[in-house]
């Protein structure tokens, strides 16, 4: 599995339908990942769309040295942080709208996390600090290697390893009996 690199190569060769494959394979995962940072599904979707449009605008920026998924997640993370940095207005939403949003988030979660145990873990992950949240997401929900996760988070492998160790420790406390799911 090349995580979209092959499809992107086809797209660069002029096959527009290859982009559909990329979208199908990576879009929801990217939105879900960005949502970990921004805590807003719509903003996350917007950022994911921007990250994907980068692939079309800057066609030769991706050099195929990492998987397309890793590259897109790197772009997504950077855009998410940028979004957080420049977000000035704190939006207040009605309670009824908030219910709708959480329902949307649930749909996204369902579409990305098919397995039950992942959904249980996801509930607890939301309560972790940001970096731990992201590392758990990348390793357990996106099935990335430590190296890929390190690339996305702009850390080295050892740092990711330590972060993951501490995140799991925290999660075990949060999950209680369900903590064994992490093993």
């Amino acid at each position: 599995m090349d995580n979209g690199a092959c499809s992107y190569r086809r797209f660069l060769d002029g096959d527009e339908s290859a982009f559909d494959d990329i979208m199908k394979e990576l879009f929801h995962g990217l939105v879900f990942f960005v949502d970990r940072y921004v805590h807003d599904v719509h903003a996350a979707e917007d950022i994911a769309i921007d990250a994907l449009s980068d692939l079309i605008v800057h066609k030769h920026r991706y050099n195929f040295k990492v998987t397309l998924k890793t590259y897109l997640f790197m772009v997504g993370r950077s855009r998410a942080l940028d979004y957080l940095k420049h977000r000035k207005v704190i939006e207040f939403t009605e309670l009824s709208e908030a219910t709708e949003v959480s329902a949307e988030e649930k749909t996204l979660e369902e579409s990305v996390l098919s397995e039950e145990k992942k959904r249980i873990v996801n509930g607890a992950v939301g309560r972790l600090p940001e970096e731990m949240r992201v590392v758990i997401h990348l390793i357990y929900f996106e099935d990335m290697t430590y190296e890929e996760a390190a690339k996305v988070m702009k850390k080295n492998r050892k740092q990711v390893d330590n972060l993951l160790y501490r995140a799991k420790k925290e999660l075990r406390i949060l999950l209680g009996e369900d903590g064994e799911l992490l093993e």
């Binding site: 982009f19 979208m23 979707e45 769309i49 079309i56």
Partner: peptide, 16 residues
């Protein structure tokens, strides 16, 4: 949440 097809159109529109 938008449909995937809708999102794809949006990606191309923004790209252009």
């Amino acid at each position: 949440m938008r449909e995937l097809e809708e999102c794809k159109k949006e990606v191309f529109r923004r790209s252009n």
